[in-house]
Design a binder for these strands. Structure first.
Length: 214
DNA sequence: TTCCCTTTGAAGAGT
DNA sequence: ACTCTTCAAAGGGAA
């Protein structure tokens, strides 16, 4: 299980303890590498305007290494989309950013009714997996995703607190972005969209899968 | 072709 | 408040 101390930190962009040296991200740092067209989201916890204009402008050319993973991944923004382009080239998006972003975010996954299926934002571990999976593949020890995920689960627990905090913060950012894009969305909307169920965590092994009426 | 497996975390539902 | 369920990604393997 994850470090219990993190539980209470997940629900905010940055916490008091993150002022300490142990934190990789601070509120300011988050906005430092946040591309300008993303800052309209106003991701500060209290809705304040964030860093000064000079800071923002200076940071516009730098991108946090995990940003492509989070906001510019192939899944979120297909290569053909505007968000597949370099961040600095997408300033024109600002005018109609919310609608365009909504079109690109998560791609165009439709449910059975033909309406768009908005997927859940990725949590910290999912973000970690997306970034790290290829490394395990390169090692060539495992090929099956289930086996790779077991390895990644062990490595996740082996990460330092500050290393994990990077992904918790990114996950928080992802959730905030998701909330901005889909204000009325609920995780419940996707219940039954996958054929399955019965928790393997509590029962140990899968015993009864049910087919939800999607 | 479709679903399972496997992981952690978030969130909704139920008690 | 607490527990349980469902889904998020990935892709090889099994049916």
């Amino acid at each position: 299980m994850e470090p219990t101390a993190f539980r209470g930190e997940v629900g905010r962009v940055s916490g008091p303890d993150q002022n300490s040296a142990g934190s990789t991200f601070s509120k300011l740092q988050l906005l430092d590498w946040c591309p300008p067209q993303q800052q309209y989201l106003n991701l500060t916890s209290r809705g304040q305007s964030g860093p000064s204009h000079t800071q923002t402008a200076a940071a516009a050319s730098s991108v946090h290494p995990l940003v492509p993973l989070l906001l510019y991944s192939d899944r979120h923004f297909p290569p053909s989309s505007l968000y597949g382009q370099p961040i600095s080239a997408s300033a024109a998006l600002q005018a109609d950013a919310p609608s365009k972003l909504r079109q690109c975010y998560h791609g165009n996954h439709n449910n059975n009714n033909g309406s768009q299926l908005v997927k859940k934002p990725l949590n910290a571990f999912m973000l970690y997996m997306k970034e790290t999976r290829h490394k395990v593949l390169q090692e060539g020890r495992e090929r099956e995703s289930a086996a790779i995920n077991r390895i990644l689960g062990r490595r996740w627990h082996a990460l330092s607190r500050s290393e994990q905090s990077k992904y918790y913060d990114l996950a928080q950012k992802e959730r905030l972005l998701h909330m901005q894009l889909y204000p009325g969305w609920s995780a419940r909307d996707n219940y039954g969209k996958r054929k399955r169920k019965q928790s393997r965590r509590s029962t140990g092994s899968c015993s009864s899968w049910t087919l939800s009426a999607g």
